[in-house]
Design a protein around this nucleic acid. Structure first.
Lengths: 132, 132
DNA sequence: CTGCATCCGCTTAGATACTG
DNA sequence: CAGTATCTAAGCGGATGCAG
């Protein structure tokens, strides 16, 4: 299957681009993890402080139980969120960002800054485009 | 940031969190724009240099004509990509990042750095989680 | 309280064929 | 070369009911 049928691009260029292509690929993986509908909101919420399940549900408007559970599971699986179960009745489960999760939060804030800085430009571009 | 020392949810806390909630919301908008399956790869590709349609199709493995068109339209609509049509036969259309698009690229690179730096941690966390 | 199981509609995106 | 149009399959996510 893997036949070298793409000699169109020069070898040197290919090598030089390899690192960045790889990075692009990795970023896709990252975006696949945090780019879904709810992960970012949950991470941002947990960035404020650790929360319980129901607190999170209240804090993230519009999220369903099902999606909150799924989102937390995914984040926990990726080592971004720590889940702590207290063996009491009624059940109590605390969620908090891990150190890895906090480094992500920092990076995400950079994206937030970009968003806040340029959202107006994008909205304007959109309006102009849609006007045609 | 939060001068309020009480962790209870009150009006002041709500106000103080409004800015960050808003930022979270904005980032969701941004992620809705660039967080799809192909936008980032296309932006990264255009970050190297301007490209023609078919060149991009070759440069982004796996993308279909349909999705490349849709992705480029979206990026153009948001003012991130400039589309230049040359009235010649056969048709020639060049795509390039706008200055706004380049600022995004810079931010995306920050995310790339994070990805490259922590992807191993995530993979490890995943493996450990899946082992259970 | 904190989930899991099920059903189901909607959106997304891949494949394919066609056009200027 | 650079798209558009149509069909279809897969997956996301919402609502609801049940359980430990």
């Amino acid at each position: 299957m893997t036949a070298d049928t793409h000699p169109s691009i020069g070898d040197r260029t290919h090598e030089l681009m390899a690192a960045r292509d790889d990075a692009t690929c990795r970023v896709r993986e990252i975006l696949d993890r945090v780019g879904d509908k709810w992960s970012l909101a949950v991470v941002a919420e947990l960035g404020k402080e650790g929360r319980r399940f129901t607190e999170l549900k209240r804090a993230v408007p519009g999220i369903s139980q099902r999606m909150l559970t799924a989102t937390l599971r995914g984040l926990e699986r990726d080592g971004l969120v720590l889940r702590t179960v207290h063996p009491v009745v009624p059940p109590r489960v605390d969620y908090a960002l891990t150190s890895l999760g906090r480094t992500l939060l920092t990076t995400v804030w950079a994206l937030m800054d970009w968003a806040l800085e340029h959202i107006d430009d994008i909205d304007r571009a959109r309006s102009e485009y849609d006007a045609r």
